[in-house]
Amino acid sequence: MQISSKEVISLIGLTSIIFLIAPLFLILYVLSYNRRKKKHQEETVMMQQNFENELLKTQMEVQEQTLKTVAYDLHDNIGQLLSLTTITLSSININDNQNTAEKIALVEALTLRSIKEVKALSRLLHGEEIVSRGLKAAIEFELEWLKRLDRFKVNFEHNNVFFTGDNAKETILFRLFQEIINNIIQHAKATEILIRLEVIEDNFRLTIRDNGVGFDVDEILKRKAGMGLHNIVKRSIMINGSASIISIPLNGATITINVPYK
């Protein structure tokens, strides 16, 4: 079949039009992709800001928790020791030599205990330093105080958890641990607490289990009272992790947090 010159010319014209339209769409695509890139960049900056805000909030909460423990310890522990010291001193009868010697020895023992307690308090006051020594060390330190309450049988299990050096992530994870322990102290009516910190593949897994009264997870999450639980879930997600909360009323609760450390 013979193609006429006019047909060839039309074909060339049509092809050229298509060849003109193609770059136009390409340019529009690049511009629209670039706009999306801008939006994505803005979102990334916003997420970073949110993360930094949340981290700051977490650090403040850790400090607040430390101060609460200090206040509690000053009142219930050191305060009591000093009161006992004062009472012992005021009851000394200098004419009764033997009794005086015994009481002075008691006062000395009380003063030494007070000094020991004050030293321990001073270590606790450097809350941020605790986290900088690693999550395991921070949890161990916090549990020392929990054990003193004598309200719980505390078990801490760990499998050679190392310090990642990601201070922000470990601070948030430590704060989650504090929040969960606080919830147990305030609401669970538990007698035993099991804390397990493990490294499984590329994840930190923190499991906290108690034998308290438990709660209805869905119900608590629906209510505003569930802010603590919401925070646990939200902050776990923020550090690219996840939180699982399992509880049956009257049967304790298990909270598991998985966080990638890479």
Binding site: V8, F19, P23, L26, N34
Partner: peptide
Amino acid sequence: HFEPLIFSAPFWWVSGTLFFYFGSTACNNF
């Protein structure tokens, strides 16, 4: 790195060049 392409000189120079050389392909071939 984000760059506002609407005001990017290299982007518009390349776009003009692409239009010209791509659009002239059919003519060049024939």
